[in-house]
């Protein structure tokens, strides 16, 4: 290259080529624009707003419920909203991440630069994962911790178990994220990606009814319990109660890795 002696040239071969630059841009898309504020308002409003209103309403019925019952309800509401409704948001966010770029032509443009296909997929994975975990798990979770502790129980809940519950809910969202990412590499149609993504999320309850063994496999087992009156895994963690099976977490992690591997494999062969 003529004329580039004033620059420090990026070197390196293999899958990580272009990752740093593309990931920086992807993260800037989340945190360098108003996107973060929009998401923060949506998720804090949805998760913590509803949680707060519910717990304050319950506490007004003085004598009818105990603080522990209020905290238990809070833990369940937080688990379902963070693990289930936020997962719907994840599918909506991710449906365009790969397909949108394929259809608009930006994927072809950016891959005409020294960017490996693996780096493209991993950027979409990790860039969005950072945004999802911060805006949908970390910040709403910390606020929920304060609400459930102070409005619900009237004292501070143990923090580390609550943090572990947040991590488990993060697994549920990453499952939804990687599943949608994989669909994005398999299809060239937004409708197919969002349709299959949401159908799977909504269909989990039916699947576990048909085959109860799936409670231990699907992420629904993280934020709901097979026994309707028993606390879910995350609620049990928050409340310090005996834990149901941890298998949905391990399955969630394993399947997420599988989805990423399939996505990487498929995108290598994608024609742009």
């Amino acid at each position: 290259m003529a004329g580039n002696s004033a620059f420090v040239i990026r070197q390196g071969r293999g899958w990580q080529r272009g990752l740093a630059n593309f990931l920086t841009a992807e993260l800037a898309g989340w945190f360098g624009t108003r996107t973060w504020l929009t998401h923060l308002l949506i998720w804090v409003g949805m998760i913590d707003g509803i949680l707060l209103v519910t717990l304050v309403t319950m506490q007004r019925d003085v004598g009818a419920v105990t603080d522990l019952e209020v905290a238990t309800t809070g833990a369940m509401i937080y688990s379902i909203f963070s693990g289930y409704f936020a997962a719907i948001g994840v599918v909506i966010i991710m449906q365009d991440a790969i397909v949108g770029e394929k259809l608009s032509g930006t994927a072809a443009w950016v891959l005409s630069k020294p960017l490996s296909r693996a780096a493209f997929v991993l950027t979409k994975l990790f860039g969005n994962m950072a945004g999802i975990l911060v805006m949908m798990i970390l910040i709403p979770g910390l606020i929920a911790y304060v609400i459930i502790s102070l409005v619900g129980l009237g004292e501070w809940l143990p923090f580390l178990p609550f943090l572990a519950a947040m991590a488990c809910l993060g697994v549920a969202l990453i499952f939804a994220q990687t599943f949608t990412l994989m669909l994005g590499t398999l299809f060239n149609n937004r409708g197919a990606v969002i349709g299959l993504g949401l159908a799977f999320l909504f269909g989990q309850q039916f699947l576990v009814q048909m085959a109860p063994v799936l409670w231990k496999v699907l992420p629904v087992g993280i934020f709901l319990n097979a026994e309707p009156d028993a606390p879910s895994l995350t609620a049990a963690l928050i409340l310090g109660q005996p834990l149901p099976s941890l298998q949905p977490v391990w399955w969630g992690i394993g399947l997420s890795v599988l989805f990423v591997v399939v996505g990487l494999w498929r995108f290598e062969k994608t024609e742009l």
Partner: peptide
Amino acid sequence: AGFFFKGP
């Protein structure tokens, strides 16, 4: 440019 150059 970031795909080609680290800096300055």
